[in-house]
């Protein structure tokens, strides 16, 4: 505990340097900017508590991201158990005039429509570039689970009536 006095300063440096990137990661994991920032802050609270182990020799960034990923994955599991089928769509909030437009908005909308676990796997596989084995290890599940979640997520994103259908049509046209 001899370093205790310097911990807040080094933690502050870490947060200031990595916060924006963690918020982006959280936004993708949740499909929502506000929830993403919430997720990043929750994870950083845990990082602070573990700071004496993570600084200066540990990888605080990787630790924080792992906490975020696991929280997003667990949230999916909780929501699934509590899900109540309904015949009507919930009321949509009014359009936010400052919300990002076009591609960003469409992708986030599509991400929000995915089940949380599919979204987490999709982000880790295609954005973070992790292998199926690495994802399985991080989420404490089988590689089969990772494969199936990723496959379903891709299918959902390419759905012809989904928000990203046009983007994938452009992609397909570009490939031919």
């Amino acid at each position: 505990m001899g370093k205790r006095g310097s911990e807040p300063d080094s933690f502050a440096e870490f947060v200031n340097a990595r916060y924006a990137a963690l918020v982006r990661h959280g936004t993708l994991l949740t499909g929502d900017h506000g929830h993403g920032e919430d997720l990043a802050q929750e994870a950083l609270v845990k990082t602070y508590r573990a700071w004496h182990r993570l600084h200066p020799d540990g990888d605080a960034d990787a630790y924080t991201r792992r906490v975020m990923v696991r929280a997003a994955w667990r949230a999916g599991r909780r929501l699934w158990r509590q899900e109540v089928p309904t015949g009507e769509l919930p009321e949509r909030r009014a359009a936010d005039p400052y919300e990002p437009r076009d591609t960003a908005r469409l992708v986030l909308t599509a991400l929000r429509e995915l089940p949380a676990q599919q979204r987490v796997v999709l982000v880790l596989r295609y954005w973070a570039g992790l292998s199926e084995q690495e994802i399985a290890g991080m989420l404490n599940c089988s590689t089969g689970t990772v494969k199936s979640r990723a496959s379903r997520a891709i299918s959902a994103l390419r759905r012809v009536d989904g928000p990203l259908a046009e983007a994938f049509q452009v992609s397909s046209a570009g490939l031919t």
């Binding site: 936004t27 900017h33 992708v107 991400l111």
Partner: peptide
């Protein structure tokens, strides 16, 4: 597409 989704995402805090 995922990159584009968060390209302009800035912390609110």
């Amino acid at each position: 597409l995922l990159d584009a989704a968060v390209e302009d995402t800035r912390p609110r805090v």
